[in-house]
């Protein structure tokens, strides 16, 4: 199926197997430009594998994956590097490089992209960008620290800075709030909303907390303060529910809350 220019990400009947066992099972969906998709599911439902497949880090056993209109299913790793430049990903726990400082971590995507040796002006430009990205996540004071010196929430925020420093049009967030206390979790979600509203990014947010979805769907940012302002019923937020690799629900918040399916209901009530 040809993909339209408004599509950012398309899954066509994608299956991923590990040891014969399907962990993503015949999944199809389209992420339109400007859309936020909340992916709900229990641990082991296949959410992480879904995001990694979207980036071409895992190859599907069958089905096709399109990123920005390019069929990436059979692309070589070298060619994938190009497509991935337009995608930011926050990994679960952040996946910061622990041998590098916070500043080096956030500069990494900018430096690895530079093909030649950089002159001083270019290096200065990169440093400015890194500082701006860190200030965006309210961590301007941590540049010299190593990831091991940071709390879980701070590591997540550095991860967000690293994922968004290149200003990619699509950002994938893998469990941005997992393992965090509710207050820190809400701070992180406020950052996601701010990032979405200020830069108009499309995003996929994987989570097992329904509350995270409610924040994405019912709030907007007040600007650089980063406070959340209620904005109920905003368009462009789609919920997906995964269960044992299957996509068992796809729809708006209203549809989700009205769903008669027991598994979906269990999720919404929690």
């Amino acid at each position: 199926m040809p993909s339209s220019p408004h599509e950012v990400l398309r899954f066509d009947n994608v299956t991923v197997r590990f040891d014969e066992q399907p962990v993503v099972d015949r999944v199809s969906f389209v992420l339109a430009a400007g859309e936020s998709r909340i992916v709900l599911g229990e641990a082991g439902a296949g959410k992480t594998v879904l995001l990694k497949t979207a980036l071409g880090l895992i190859r599907p056993d069958s089905g096709r994956v399109h990123l920005f209109g390019t069929d990436i299913t059979d692309l070589k790793e070298k060619a994938l590097f190009e497509v991935r430049q337009r995608v930011g990903m926050l990994f679960q726990e952040g996946a910061l490089f622990d041998s590098q400082t916070v500043e080096e971590n956030v500069a990494y995507p900018l430096l690895s992209r530079a093909q030649k040796t950089l002159n001083n002006t270019e290096l200065q430009a990169i440093e400015d960008k890194v500082l701006r990205a860190l200030e965006f996540v309210e961590l301007g004071h941590t540049v010299e620290k190593f990831p091991s010196e940071l709390s879980g929430g701070m590591r997540r925020r550095v991860g967000i800075a690293r994922a968004t420093v290149t200003e990619p049009p699509l950002v994938l967030y893998d469990s941005p709030t997992a393992g965090l206390d509710p207050i820190t979790a809400n701070t992180i979600m406020a950052l996601l909303v701010k990032e979405r509203d200020i830069r108009n990014t499309s995003s996929m947010v994987v989570t097992h907390r329904y509350q995270d979805g409610q924040i994405m769907a019912g709030f907007r940012t007040d600007g650089h303060e980063g406070k959340l302002i209620p904005d109920p019923g905003r368009p462009g937020v789609v919920f997906m529910v995964m269960r044992e690799g299957r996509l068992i629900f796809e729809g708006t918040q209203t549809e989700l809350e009205a769903s008669p399916e027991a598994y979906v209901r269990k999720f919404v009530r929690r």
Binding site: L57, E77, M89, A95, L96, F97, P109, S112, R113
Partner: peptide, 11 residues
């Protein structure tokens, strides 16, 4: 800790 995946994701 997915640092290898992060590396690939960052080119």
């Amino acid at each position: 800790t997915e640092q290898i995946d992060a590396m690939r994701a960052l080119g």
